[in-house]
Design a protein around this nucleic acid. Structure first.
Lengths: 148, 148
DNA sequence: ATTCATGCAAATCGTTTGCAACCCA
DNA sequence: TGGGTTGCAAACGATTTGCATGAAT
């Protein structure tokens, strides 16, 4: 059993949940497709290759659970469905998304320069920021080159 | 007719759309409830006071149109429905949202300190940022005071 | 008059839920 | 064994669409 599988097992046990074949399969698919921002339906299609009998509802339930346990992150790229990525928050691998409004591609930035802004917010708004989500909209390199 | 109504009329005419009573009513409601982040259903309820015969579908269609014309902004606070606010982008009144994960309240920050980050993104990622959306999650003042 | 917009109801889509059968701890 | 978990199908809620009627330019 891999490192991550063990970690998952522990996380589930701590909260009184069971490590089932289906849950393993769902997490494995997300891990095998890092940076692809798979939607629930896409995850379902991939999981079916390993687990042909799995139901869509089970995938939804697994994703809901992983999201609550903060193993994964729900993303919203305004395309009408939920997408997910592994939560690397604890390792401080926070990143933001660059969404190209021309071709729809999504890439990532590793930067995190929001600390100063968060300090200001605490002072001015008395609001304690614990997390943030940032989406940048614009034109990717490929689209900009095509434009010329 | 107010400034904004005129602006709306012009925006619609430019694109070959008509200024109908219903569209006026929808925009008026959003304007009359600034900073309230009304959901479609809430907008519908308010609009019915002025326009009792209006159908929910018409509200959806008006909001879709205004969003495409960038008169309004669609917001997503993860509560399962679309919310909207007037787009003050052109006036550079850009703001971000502070979402309290305890009580669910949403407030606003006027700050915009992302320019430096956007410059860096252009250099490192060759991605030209035209717009961005930022959501901060944390604890509002009221909830933090209750905690103590 | 023409063309676009509306209201209504039905259709759609993503997601959730109830329940009997099932399986991990 | 027993309570969490699954698969299935039905239910759900938000949003969209088809169509005949109605209104704005």
């Amino acid at each position: 059993m891999s490192n991550l599988a063990n970690e998952l097992k522990e996380q589930l046990k701590e909260n009184g949940y069971k490590l089932t074949t289906q849950r393993r399969a769902v997490l494995d698919v997300i891990l095998e497709h890092e940076n692809e921002h798979l939607s629930t339906e896409e995850i379902y299609e991939y999981v079916k290759l390993k687990c042909p009998e799995i139901g869509l509802a089970t995938v939804y339930r697994a994703l809901l659970l992983f999201d609550r346990l903060e193993l994964i992150y729900k993303l919203d790229f305004d395309d009408g469905c939920s997408r997910y990525e592994i939560n690397r928050h604890k390792e401080d691998h926070r990143h933001h998304h660059l969404i190209c409004t021309q071709c729809g591609s999504v890439s990532e930035v590793e930067e995190d320069l929001l600390e100063t802004l968060e300090e200001e917010i605490l002072i001015k708004n008395k609001f304690l920021v614990k997390d943030h989500r940032v989406k940048f909209y614009g034109y990717c390199q490929a689209c900009r080159e095509k434009e010329e």
